[in-house]
Simulated assay, not measured.
Amino acid sequence: MKNITAAMPSPPPKWVERFARIGLLANGLVYCLVGLLAFMAAFGLRKGSQENADREGVFKFVLEQPFGKVLLLLIALGLAFYSLWRLIQALKDTEQRGENLKGLGRRAGYLFSGVMYGGFAIAAFRLALGSGGSGKGDQRETLAQKVLEQPMGQWLLILIGLGVIGSGLYQIYRGVSNKYKKKVAGSNLKHETEEMMVRAGKAGYVARGIVWGLIGYFFIQAALHFNPSEAGGTGQAFRFLESSFGSILLGAVAVGLICYGAFMFMRAKYQPIKTA
């Protein structure tokens, strides 16, 4: 009996599980707001351009609301929790990806996500505390500029762009193939709840993949033209979608991002959290 008990997995530390769930909620809220602002900009329901519908635009939108500073600090804290959870996934291999090439690749993805969301959290904290925020696209422009200054910098930036496009295509693949359903495997969901998650996740991953693909395309354009200012983010992707394909497609992608946010909410409630 003692050996059987020792072989059983221990429950995850509560603080890590709470961090993960709070982080998923904060991430979901940001995606919902990004999608909402993009939808409103597409159909002229709110003043401001599509470029104001990125994460920085969301932070500023929250700050303008009643008790905005408190709300933004809470969002920043949630994003910091999400970042910490991603770093734990990468460094402790809580998803048991292993140390083969594929496993290390997935863990590197968790690490990149943790660093990226850590940056988002810092930006939100700075804005809430009155330290100001970076200009639109500044982070990506700075990255592009530093890469272009290196030997073979144009080729390196093209590789980065291709990597981001590949990540976007993989997001679309995950949505179409329903691979994201593994996120809630073992949760014993009701059929109606599972179907709702499947529909929200499918739309969300496809929309997210489209945006990522465009951001990768902007990196490649910045490399080809040796112009770091062309390395745009979510807001520029929205503007490109509307100018090239019209408000209907932008509205559809915006709804997809809202669905992704809803999927994050459902993950926060139902996803089993592994921490060891």
Rank of each mutant, 00 (worst) to 15 (best):
K2W: 04
A7M: 12
S10L: 15
P12W: 11
E17T: 15
F19S: 15
R21F: 10
L24W: 10
A26Y: 03
N27H: 13
L37D: 03
L37Q: 08
A38V: 05
F39M: 12
S49P: 02
A53E: 09
E56S: 12
V62E: 01
Q65D: 03
V70F: 13
L77T: 15
L77G: 12
F81Q: 02
L87D: 02
L91Y: 12
K92F: 15
G98T: 05
N100V: 02
L101I: 14
L101H: 06
L104N: 10
F112S: 13
V115R: 02
G119R: 08
F120G: 00
L129C: 11
S131I: 02
G135P: 05
Q139A: 15
E141T: 13
L143T: 10
P151R: 08
M152D: 14
G153K: 01
Q154D: 09
L156R: 14
L156H: 05
L162H: 09
L169E: 07
L169C: 13
Y170T: 08
Q171N: 13
I172Q: 09
R174P: 00
G175F: 03
S177I: 04
Y180V: 03
A185S: 15
S187P: 00
K190N: 12
H191R: 14
V198A: 13
R199N: 09
K202M: 12
G204I: 07
G232F: 03
R239N: 14
R239L: 15
F240H: 12
G246P: 06
I248F: 12
G256C: 07
L257K: 04
L257Q: 08
C259G: 07
G261E: 04
G261M: 06
A262I: 15
F263Q: 08
M264P: 00
F265V: 12
Q271I: 02
Q271F: 07
P272H: 07
